[in-house]
Design a protein around this nucleic acid. Structure first.
Lengths: 408, 408
DNA sequence: GCAATTTAATTCAGGAGTCAAAATAAAATT
DNA sequence: AATTTTATTTTGACTCCTGAATTAAATTGC
């Protein structure tokens, strides 16, 4: 039985009835994938199409190997002919999701049903490097991953890749990235040529947003924003169940919206960016003053220190976090004023420094937004496990593969 | 002949081929309306549908009175059977567009082809008032308008209304408006009951944006932002040829995005809103200091003074405008970072104070945005005639009427 | 144990919408 | 007048989907 509360399956879960003009074939497939398992009658009911259509579409999908009937359905109760559930046939294809970052690349192998089959990591320089080097690292990573799962490159239908920077998902061109020395690198083409598999690139925040939409707290929601605080401040937005990539395809750079005229210096070289008040390096910058000593350690060690001191009641350390939290609140309230999402997810792998989203900061955010008759936009903190980003990248690839095979 | 450069017709002009899943009937109608006049073959070519379909669809549309063939086609040159152009049959219906504001309401009468048939104005209090009063004023305005055109209320298919404030276009509820004393007023329902005609409400910035999309500089563009500086700072956004109203339907409040933590006081009661640095009242507030004298005149007179002084080289007056311009640049750069539009239109009825969008301010805007390989987003200044807002409201009504009569 | 009931799934005869290609129409050229 | 060119209409077919009737497989009641 299809169950709203159930969290099996993956992919965006349709909230209303049938949406738009996609072939019904694809809609049925995506519905079943989203549900995890669903009998034909549920498909018909919730997609608001006739049972007859479902029969013909599913038999087609079963014949071409995309769906399969679930064997054991030891039914609990109820009269009538028992429904036989359908599910995505995992063996219909495999995709890889990859996250490229500054210290560690990671990747997951995923089947068509969204199940993770293997993971792998590959450490890297920690410094900007030429994209040729990055491509080689991605190549090694893929080899490790496939070896672990006992698969060949030929088994892979597509690879989704997420990386920080300004990425044009449509063309695969990386206009700028903090991990690459080049600008306007055609990383998509280069990866495809090197790996011998179709590659889909996107900004890491978008990939994280897809992870929320497909596997996380965003399932079943059609309009929400995802904000992530790691090295920088990233943002992704889902509108009408789909990732919004900006009118021209270059992402939503919340981190570089200005929150202060002639403000603090950002690593992008401009002044007053939100990032320059909220990101880790902004905190580290002030830590030297607050802790009143030489800073010889690495950035993350300094932050740990600062955080511990703040917890201990160190006034200056607390002040640093508190101001950052207020600026985060300001940034989030701007998101609310402009996009009016139903929810904001603060998401990421290691959202620690909870000073940033302390009660008071969130209250301030609500206070900064225009009052409406409805309750203020809920902000939810969602810290994930290790493989989020890579899984989101896999979702990117899954989406492309199903659209390619089932789409118009 | 259909001609891209021609600016007859109205309505969004499709840029690419056929877009989505709207009935072709409606698409053909909207194409012809957008083109002003177009022969069947052009419809087929540009919508990428078969000539046969165009014949059957247009004959249907002609039979039901939506389209008509153009009589005189004194052709220039060319062989073959001469094309016979189609156009929207103006008499297929009438709509009214209405702008409600604080000093003066205005309205236009428009036929289905988008041609203006009459205008009317109605002065009003200049102060916040109960929505019952506003409804009465709208009623008088409608009467005047119809009298002038010699029409009955029954001739009107729909009324589009634009007003400042936070308006839910889907429900017609006005959450808050600077011209109303009430909050959460169901103005849509009330107007409909009073006027006896279907009413479609929207925020005034959205209505202006529709005016640009249907009749102005936005025709043929599918992704652009409109920013308007009047009493406050408003914004509208077109994505994929359609007005974007925010995920939950409550507009894009650029004027109340925060550009300074604990900044200047805004009329909304919060601090640091963009409006509090750029809108007229923000300038008036500083004028007293700059001009060094008692301010007993009205706001617009003060501004005139200030502007004249600035033009004369008065340092403090110039400084006021210059700072406002820089904040405007900041706000626009945030719009670019978040939405990545192809163009920004600075639009409105009386965009004077050109200090605000001086060369240097626009250069600063470009400089504040992340550098991309493509040229910076162009900003275009577009000051309109008197009836813009009302025409935009008429477009809102036209859209609703055609969707209702031709849609699924 | 056997009908009656209930729910699931399939079959099949259309219907709406669209297209491709052939036919027709109306002009300019030869 | 025949030919060419371009615009429009006609026609038959095809795709996708629906809705009603039918078949399938279980439970319930007697």
């Amino acid at each position: 039985m299809y169950d709203e509360a159930d969290d099996s399956g993956c992919g965006p879960r349709p909230s209303g009835p049938r949406s738009e003009a996609q072939p019904l074939r694809q809609q049925v497939f995506e519905f079943v994938r989203a549900a995890g398992q669903a009998p034909r009658m549920d498909v018909a009911r919730l997609l608001e199409i006739s049972p007859g259509s479902v029969t013909s579409l599913t038999s087609d999908l079963i014949a071409s190997g995309f769906l399969e009937e679930v064997e054991s359905a030891p039914r609990e109760a109820g009269r009538g002919r028992p429904p036989v559930a359908l599910q995505v046939a995992g063996q219909a294809g495999l995709v890889v999701g990859m996250k490229l970052a500054d210290r560690m690349h990671s990747a997951v192998l995923v089947d068509m049903a969204g199940r993770m089959l293997a993971e792998a990591e590959e450490p890297c320089g920690g410094r900007r490097q030429s994209y040729g080097v990055t491509v080689d690292e991605a190549d090694r990573l893929l080899t490790t991953l496939l070896d672990r799962a006992g698969r060949q490159r030929g088994d892979i239908s597509a690879i989704g890749v997420g990386l920080p920077g300004i990425v044009d998902a449509a063309t695969g061109i990386v206009a700028w990235s903090p991990i690459l020395t080049e600008t306007d690198a055609d990383l998509g083409l280069c990866l495809r040529d090197h790996l011998g598999v179709p590659v889909h690139l996107d900004n890491d925040a978008n990939v994280l947003t897809l992870a929320e939409l497909w596997f996380g707290a965003g399932r079943g929601m059609s309009d929400f924003a995802v904000v992530t605080i790691e090295h920088g401040v990233g943002m992704g937005l889902v509108l009408g169940g789909e990732l919004f990539r900006g009118a021209q395809g270059l992402g939503i750079e919340l981190g570089h919206t200005k929150v202060h005229l002639d403000g603090a210096l950002c690593r992008c070289g401009r002044r007053g960016c939100l990032e320059a008040y909220v990101a880790d390096y902004a905190l580290v910058r002030e830590a030297a003053t607050a802790l009143d000593r030489e800073m010889t350690e690495g950035a993350s060690a300094i932050l740990e220190h600062l955080y511990a001191e703040a917890k201990n009641g160190h006034g200056a350390a607390q002040a640093i976090f508190r101001r950052a939290g207020r600026y985060l609140a300001l940034g989030l309230s701007n998101v609310v004023q402009l996009f009016d999402p139903t929810k904001i997810l603060l998401s990421g792998e290691r959202l620690r420094y909870d000073y940033l989203y302390a009660e008071e900061a969130m209250a301030e955010m609500a206070q900064m937004s225009l009052p409406l008759s409805r309750p203020p936009v809920p902000v939810e903190i969602h810290a994930w496990g290790d493989w989020v980003w890579a899984r989101g990248a896999a979702a990117l690839a899954l989406d492309a593969v199903t659209a390619d095979r089932l789409g118009r």
